[in-house]
């Protein structure tokens, strides 16, 4: 029962992450949605798998995947944002502030 609820929440957050990926205006905001909702959604699904299987090998592997996903997703988001900025992708029209511009030059 708990596992069903956790997996449902995870799928819902992944869906919201995908909607954000389409709706938000520029690459930086899209990455916000993709990393946050994607990671929490997937972690929730993995926690659901842990509750479903219990502490046998499949459940423990799901538990180990959570920190791996945490480090992987954050490092990937950082690399993509930094890479996009150095490649020359502009911040979207709604942006109000850019302190990084002076630092890069």
């Amino acid at each position: 029962m708990v596992s069903t609820i956790l997996i449902a929440i995870g799928v819902l957050f992944n869906l919201i992450g995908c909607i954000g990926l389409i709706r938000l205006p520029d690459v930086y905001n899209r990455l916000q949605s993709a990393t946050k909702c994607g990671t929490l959604g997937t972690c929730s699904i993995l926690a659901g798998a842990l509750f479903h299987f219990g502490f046998v090998d499949a459940g423990i592997k799901a538990l180990i995947a959570i920190p791996l996903l945490f480090f992987g997703a954050t490092a990937a988001a950082h690399a993509l944002v930094r890479g996009a900025y150095h490649f020359g992708v502009k911040l979207g029209d709604k942006s109000v502030k850019d302190d990084y511009k002076d630092a890069v030059k």
């Binding site: 919201i16 938000l24 930086y28 916000q32 909702c37 911040l91 109000v96 850019d98 990084y100």
Partner: peptide, 17 residues
């Protein structure tokens, strides 16, 4: 983030600080 994504007017004000 879910609220900002689903809200029809998308209340975002992005920037790098």
């Amino acid at each position: 983030v879910a609220y900002r994504v689903l809200h029809p007017a998308m209340p975002i004000k992005p920037g790098i600080v």
